[in-house]
């Protein structure tokens, strides 16, 4: 019954997420509403970690394969991409590298600054 219960809870939260997506006029997908609901349920203690843990681990482990169908769908987008392939490719690759570098370096810079300047704050204990 363990997996049935866990899967049931996860699917139910996905369903609530879809209802919210349908009712709230914002471009926020059902999955993000669901993620927030799941997090709130865990933080508030409505759900225990043991209520979802194993099934969540399974779904996260096999997550990469869930992107295959959409990625294979690129075969139908080739006609839209081809006319300006070079420009599109440069924008896609350059911005990926810039964003990853900027987000990572900025996070790291603040982390290290805090470590140096507030060595005795709560930040150190949690680590």
């Amino acid at each position: 019954m363990k997996y049935l219960k866990q899967f049931g809870i996860i699917i139910f939260i996905s369903f609530i997420g879809e209802l919210m997506h349908g009712m709230i006029p914002l471009p926020v997908p059902a999955s993000i509403y669901g993620l927030v609901i799941m997090l709130l349920a865990l933080v508030s203690g409505v759900l225990k970690l043991s209520d979802v843990k194993e099934t969540a681990a399974l779904l996260i482990e096999i997550m990469p394969i869930m992107f295959i169908p959409a990625a294979v769908g690129l075969m139908d987008s080739w006609g839209v991409i081809r006319p300006r392939l070079a420009a599109y490719a440069v924008i896609t690759v350059v911005s990926l590298v810039v964003v990853m570098a900027m987000a990572g370096r900025a996070t790291q810079a603040v982390l290290r600054w805090e470590k140096r300047h507030k060595g005795h704050s709560i930040g150190k204990q949690v680590k």
Partner: peptide, 9 residues
Amino acid sequence: TPATVCLAV
């Protein structure tokens, strides 16, 4: 969708 929900864990 359910897998993304599980990222909360």
